[in-house]
Nucleic acid binder design. Structure first.
Length: 617
RNA sequence: GGGGGCGUAGCGCAAUUGGUUAGAGCACUGCCCUGUCACGGCAGAGGUUGCGGGUUCGAACCCCGUCGCUCCCGCCA
């Protein structure tokens, strides 16, 4: 016999009328009418109304109830009369007439309301995450996360993949993000690192002959947080496949992603196969490598039109090898002056110098810059954007990098302001043909623009005979609604091509050996061509729940400063623990205890003389 | 490390833009109420306006510093 419940709080229906039941849960709300009292009892499954009548055994305890206390009621299920049915509640056709009550756990007054799903300070929510997670939206997010993870596993297995575990304690990786380090006790002075991703291990699994790998893998990176970037740790649906081309990876991911989004969303989806957009086209047409295709506007290059221009602002930009990007927008001429001023301010916020624009009207063109332009230039612009009366063309002129960014940001902004952006739906695309290298002004050498493990398109021949900036990699991103969902590559499994690829960035064979010796050694004993990808689970959930930030889909996230406010991580450790690890702390001197704040200036160390023990920051 | 925004009761907010004793709602405490479902009504308690300094006859409001939060840049192969 069940001690705590015969039914859950989401279970009872008309069919149960007449039964004696026991339910347990949290006190969600209480409506005390002086005589009859209504108590909403909530658990994971739902809410059920319990009616407490004067004279019943449970009535006398009623003054002790408080929201979020855990209670157990026994009672009888009765049908509600038509006037009192609550259609907002799944159990609203019935109610439980309370007989006995047991308070299983008394709650203190909560710092915020669980029943009322209203905003409150996020750090307060994180400190009391167990309360926050009781709330409807958060509870649903975490349930969805579990269902999506299960579905991913089922779908991957159906696609012929097996899930493998890879180490959490591994070694520091020479490239990429900052590592989290774990000191070794057995090897004093040496450190493990938490994996930024199981990259090398999944490649080793391919070399080990396992063919199709996946893992819902935790990844650890010690980098600053963003709204869509969890500090510290996040999860990837890590995938690797042997004997495949890029298109075969795409086919698997499209099946997975289309399946997941179809299963968990009713919104419109991009039909598979998703559009492939080259990196070069994306940078030109959308100003970014993660385009939001919900906005129908396309950026065009207008540099050639202004080669001989007398308009100084553009002339100077082009003379310095900059570019002029144009954005043609229909039916925008009627917008008030403040609309255009706002856009100019917006573009300046994003790093632009300004934002020129030309309006086409029935009487001709109207623009602050029209007087600097020749009829031939205006004519060419009209043709470029097929400009009709009522249309406006915006210009971003700057270095290619800045012009792309500004035009890209203005493109999305215009889409939102003019209501052109689709309100619903998921727009997927592949960004392909990423450049293998980019010139680093800082270091005065070529650098990998993405993953050094990627296979250059054209292989060794390309490395030997093509200018580095012309070489593309088999490197690809999956993008949805302007969010980078996933990044992957066909890997470079040939040691000699690996050496050559690194050589272009100034690394010797010995350097490569030192950095990636483990992987390279494996490649010497028969490595299959292989490639993979790693969709971000947290970001998929953000899209499915329309969450404003990534912490909304993680049960116990660190806050933006990388702290766990519930348990207090990171925390101090004992002297004994440090001694065992042979670690001596070297912290900046704490301010003298009890020092009057007013005397701080005199107590501070003389400028230019760092306090001994201050770490170099 | 840098920039923007924010900081008022336990919570989410207001305070006519520098003017008397900083307000109402939810929550809390007490009382009333027998069909509510965000129940309702009466009363009460609850504040160093993040902290420190300054300007002023007068500061929640203006200035400087500082701390915290948040979004962004850097960073994230």
């Amino acid at each position: 016999m069940q001690q705590y419940r015969t039914h859950t709080c989401g279970e009872l229906r008309k069919t149960h009328v007449g039964q004696s039941v026991t339910i347990s849960g949290w006190v969600h709300r209480v409506r005390d009418h002086g005589g009859v009292i209504f108590v909403d009892v909530r658990d994971h499954y739902g809410v059920t109304q319990v009616v407490v009548n004067p004279g019943s055994a449970c009535y006398q305890d009623s003054t002790k109830w408080r929201c979020e206390s855990v209670v157990k009621f026994t009672g009888r299920v009765v049908e509600r009369i038509a006037e009192t049915v609550n259609s907002k509640l799944a159990t609203g056709d019935i109610e439980v007439v309370g007989d006995t009550l047991e308070i299983l756990s008394e709650a203190e007054v909560t710092p915020f309301s669980v029943a009322l799903d209203s905003d409150c300070d996020e750090n307060l929510r994180l400190k009391y995450r167990f309360l926050d997670l009781r709330r409807e939206q958060m509870h649903a997010n975490i349930v969805l996360r579990s269902k999506v993870a299960s579905s991913v596993r089922r779908r991957m297995v159906d696609l012929g993949f097996l899930e493998y575990n890879t180490p959490i304690l591994t070694c520091s990786s020479p490239e990429g993000a900052r590592d989290f380090l774990v000191p070794s006790r057995l090897h004093a002075g040496k450190f493990y690192a938490l994996p930024q991703a199981p990259q090398i291990f999944k490649q080793l699994l391919m070399v080990s002959g396992f063919d199709r790998y996946f893992q819902i893998a935790p990844c650890f990176r010690d980098e600053d947080a963003r709204a869509d970037r969890s500090p510290g740790e996040f999860y990837q649906i890590d995938i690797e496949m042997s004997f495949v081309t890029q298109e075969e990876v795409f086919a698997v991911v499209e099946k997975l992603i289309d399946g997941i989004f179809s299963e968990f969303s009713t919104q419109a989806l991009t039909a598979t196969p998703y559009p492939r957009i080259t990196y070069r086209d994306s940078m030109l047409q959308y100003g970014t490598d993660k385009p939001d295709l919900r906005v129908p506007l396309i950026i065009q290059d207008a540099s050639d039109i202004f080669r001989e221009t007398g308009f100084n602002a553009f002339k100077q930009v082009l003379a310095k090898k900059g570019v002029v990007r144009a954005l043609a927008v229909r039916n925008c001429a009627e917008q008030p002056r403040s609309f255009f001023d706002g856009l100019i301010a917006f573009s300046q916020e994003k790093g632009g110098k300004g934002l020129a624009y030309i309006t086409w009207t029935a009487e001709g063109v109207k623009s602050p810059i029209a007087k600097f332009l020749t009829p031939a230039e205006l004519d060419a612009l009209q043709k470029l954007g097929n400009m009709q009366p009522g249309d406006v063309m915006f210009f971003a002129a700057d270095t290619e990098k800045v012009a792309n960014k500004v035009a890209g940001e203005v493109r999305v902004r215009l889409g939102e302001l003019l209501g052109l952006k689709e309100k619903e739906g998921y727009k997927f695309c592949w960004i392909v043909d990423f450049p293998m290298y980019e010139w680093s002004d800082e270091e005065q050498r070529w650098d990998f623009s993405h993953n050094p493990f990627s296979m250059p398109q054209g292989g060794m021949d390309a490395l030997l005979n093509t200018k580095p900036d012309q070489i593309c990699a088999y490197q690809y991103d999956l993008v949805c609604n302007g969010i980078e969902l996933s990044s992957g590559a066909i890997r470079n499994h040939r040691p000699e091509i690996m050496y050559k690829a690194f050589e272009l960035c100034g690394y010797t064979q010995a350097d490569v050996e030192k950095k990636f010796g483990g992987l390279l050694n494996a490649f010497r004993f028969g490595a299959p061509p292989h490639g993979g990808i790693a969709p971000g689970l947290d970001r998929i959930l953000m899209l499915l729940t329309n969450a404003p930030n990534i912490r909304e889909v993680i049960a116990f996230p660190l806050n933006q400063n990388g702290q766990d406010l519930l348990l207090g991580a990171p925390g101090e450790v004992t002297e004994k623990q440090l001694r065992e690890l042979r670690i001596k702390l070297n912290l900046p001197a704490a301010p003298a205890a009890g020092a009057a704040t007013g005397a701080a200036a005199t107590a501070a160390p003389a400028p230019g003389k760092p306090t001994p023990g201050t770490p170099i920051s």
